[in-house]
Write a protein that binds this DNA or RNA. Sequence first.
DNA 1: CCCAAGTGGAACATTGGTGTTCCATCGTGT
DNA 2: ACACGATGGAACACCAATGTTCCACTTGGG
Lengths: 189, 189
Amino acid sequence: MVVDGPAETGARARTRRAILDAAVSALSRDPASSLGDIAAAAGVGRTTVHRYFAERSDLLQALSNDALDKIAVANERARLGEGGPVEALERFCKEMFELGDLLMLIFNDPQLMACPEWEEYTEADRDFLRLVERGHAEGVMDRELSPEWVQQTLWALLYAAWSHVRENGASKFDALVLCLRTVRKSIAT
Amino acid sequence: MVVDGPAETGARARTRRAILDAAVSALSRDPASSLGDIAAAAGVGRTTVHRYFAERSDLLQALSNDALDKIAVANERARLGEGGPVEALERFCKEMFELGDLLMLIFNDPQLMACPEWEEYTEADRDFLRLVERGHAEGVMDRELSPEWVQQTLWALLYAAWSHVRENGASKFDALVLCLRTVRKSIAT
DNA sequence: CCCAAGTGGAACATTGGTGTTCCATCGTGT
DNA sequence: ACACGATGGAACACCAATGTTCCACTTGGG
């Protein structure tokens, strides 16, 4: 939630989003994408990119904030506190899967998301770790697997799912089904 | 296996290795590392790097070849054809885990390993897919999971294991144990 | 319709990585 | 001790990405 001064008019907000989305798409495919590449992907002039984000680092910062927002939203939608831990885990998985390219970017560019905000566990992270602890307590998740490891596993399998789409031409749906099945089996008691 | 002309004297071979190893280490942490960074990591002058690899692309090419060699060696050591499919899968997992940083690099820099050699399935890849097919045939691996997906899963979990070491400070041993357990459960019938 | 807001592109200076040359130094095997 | 292979560092030209300015355009909201 960043205040953007004069409440961005329609056109500005739209262009801003186009640039951010294009940046995620381009950077997720090649973390070394130039601003020119990103501008082209957004269907916009390089000058315009600079109009919205003075420096490259500003764009990356905005990207990082946007990612945090999206993750927070996905986390809320997953309602980790409600229902059985395993069902909650599946909801979480489905929600995060929808992040798409953003997922690949976060994964491939760890140092991009090394800002202070990510340093301390994000709200979603903490919720997730608590969920696994609850799963342990209720005896529905493998106690041999620490919450931190389950977290690593989940992100890795989400990444694997999108790689499956990109590299093996799998459908988004099939990839999600495989991912969910694999996650469920991995974590099960 | 690349022939290197005049059979490299001891010192040259040692320096060459140091540079390659440092490159893997540096690039796995930041794919945008400069040659200066890599030289520093290798404890060597930037000039010396250029003496061994005229251009950056030459270094990357050598890195790619080196990776292919190491994977091929690990693959042979795993003897995928021998014994039960599940045991073979575990051997494979252990061998590949030893690739360490190289694993992270291959994962984080897919376009680096997009050379012609990687284009068509590498020997190890083909062996692996056959192994999963054998697992399916013998009924010891989940038939709902295609060989390609199992492959994605395995690499993703190996990556997760090393991330667990880097980010959560887990020991190499613990990470491998968790990884093996998770792989076994994921793939099991 | 009309004009301010928004845009694209050319042109430019700046920067940091790259690739090259040259020379002084180091160290190791003989 | 000596020579030669190997190295480090300074200095340089080069290039691609970046960041900035200016101006001409279009466009959509009033």
